[in-house]
């Protein structure tokens, strides 16, 4: 059995995004309401009042939002608070994109 490395382009931390766990993701989320969204205008207003949240389309009890926060701690806070808002029964992730620099660690 040999032991030489095959010198081809296996993705590594250098060829992929570098160590990005210190960074905060931009996430696309879907908020699911117990009943149609129209009955939860107050909750949607609450969501819109959060500066890091951008709201998108809503249909059939589901609302698309994007969260772009500056710290992981804040990201977690937003996640937790959205889950506890009136009428919210589920919070799902459609997409997570990580930032690629180191300026989001100030809460550590």
């Amino acid at each position: 059995m040999g032991c030489m490395l095959l010198g081809t382009a296996i993705p590594t931390k250098d060829t992929l995004f570098s160590e990005s766990l210190t960074q905060v993701p931009v996430s696309g989320l879907v908020v699911t309401f117990q009943t149609p969204v129209d009955q939860y205008r107050e909750t949607i207003e609450l969501l819109r009042a959060v500066p890091e949240i951008e709201t998108g389309e809503f249909k059939n009890g589901k609302l698309a939002i994007v969260v772009d926060s500056e710290t992981r701690h804040r990201d977690q806070e937003i996640w937790d608070s959205v889950r506890q808002m009136p009428g919210v029964i589920d919070l799902a992730v459609a997409f997570v994109g990580f930032d690629d620099d180191q300026n989001h660690t100030r809460d550590e």
């Binding site: 696309g28 879907v30 699911t32 459609a94 994109g97």
Partner: peptide
């Protein structure tokens, strides 16, 4: 970052507007 946000929104919206009845993710 703006690109990531628009991609994230597109992904989330596509889930919301889907007619097929599933949600996540």
């Amino acid at each position: 970052r703006s690109f990531l946000k628009s991609t994230a929104m597109a992904a989330a919206c596509s889930m919301v507007t889907s007619e097929a009845g599933f949600s996540l993710p």
